[in-house]
């Protein structure tokens, strides 16, 4: 894994999650950011800040990205979501087109 193949997602509280671009692109919103020709400033630095998404939710989202790739490659497991996170997670998922 090379640094160029990763992207850093930053939460509201300034926590950082370094994940594979491939995983991040499970989100259509992030995919658009990383692949659109106009090139977002975010893409150049490989960093995307989400001031609206809390750390707990952002971590859950990253876990979902990887789960989603695993699921797509045939490993059918369940994705566990704590009930108290559900609403906030759904709002973030809607925003990220995930």
């Amino acid at each position: 894994m090379k640094k160029e193949d990763t992207v850093k997602l930053i939460s509201a509280e300034g926590f950082e999650f370094v994940i594979d671009k491939k995983a991040a692109m499970v989100s259509q919103t992030i995919r658009n950011m990383l692949t659109s020709p106009g090139s977002f400033a975010e893409t150049e630095h490989g960093e995307v800040t989400f001031p609206e998404i809390s750390t707990v939710i952002l971590e859950k989202i990253c876990q979902y990205f990887y789960w989603s790739l695993q699921y797509a490659s045939g490993k059918e497991t369940e994705f566990h979501i704590e009930p108290e996170l559900t609403l906030e997670l759904m709002m973030a998922a809607n925003y990220l087109h995930t």
Partner: peptide
């Protein structure tokens, strides 16, 4: 998930 300070690295 490798964690150090405020950063988490997801490693495949």
């Amino acid at each position: 998930r490798v964690k150090h300070c405020k950063t988490t690295y997801f490693l495949q």
